[in-house]
């Protein structure tokens, strides 16, 4: 299984990438939504994208909206992993097409449980 980790923080990309690798995923990362859209084209397909909300160039919400406009990515799960914790933000992300939502700080167990909910059972 393949995962695209999108976060403007290099540290988070590293930590979340390591978590996903431990859970059996091959990981590619991107520093913002636009770079992620480019990597979908150049390095895809991915089973899941884990997306931060607040990023420069293109934020995670706009990445979700853009991705869901393109039917070739219909099967890719989208999980927001963000510091945004307002209920309205969660609803907004789900309505735009995100499949799951994790509020930072995260743990490996949290990510694993959410992957299971999405039918991507970790190894």
């Amino acid at each position: 299984m393949r995962a695209l980790v999108i976060d403007d923080s290099r540290a988070i990309r590293l930590i979340l990438g390591q978590v996903m690798k431990k859970l059996g995923f091959e990981v590619v990362d991107a520093g913002d939504g636009q770079e992620a859209l480019n990597k979908l084209k150049s390095d895809g397909p991915f089973d899941i994208a884990l997306v931060d909300w607040n990023m420069p160039v293109m934020n995670g919400y706009d990445f979700v909206v853009n991705t869901r406009k393109d039917s070739q990515y219909n099967d890719m799960r989208l999980m927001m992993v963000t510091t945004e914790t307002e209920m309205a933000q969660v609803v907004k992300a789900l309505e735009a097409g995100a499949n799951e939502y994790v509020m930072k700080p995260f743990t490996k167990e949290m990510i694993a449980e959410k992957l299971t909910l999405l039918g991507l059972s970790p190894e």
């Binding site: 914790t85 307002e86 209920m87 969660v90 609803v91 992300a93 789900l94 995100a98 799951e100 939502y101 994790v102 509020m103 700080p105 995260f106 167990e109 949290m110 449980e113 959410k114 299971t116 909910l117």
Partner: peptide, 20 residues
Amino acid sequence: SQLEINRGLPAMLMVKYFQR
């Protein structure tokens, strides 16, 4: 807590059955 709500609960159900 936020940590507990993140554990295994589908976001869709959190939105529907919890209030902050």
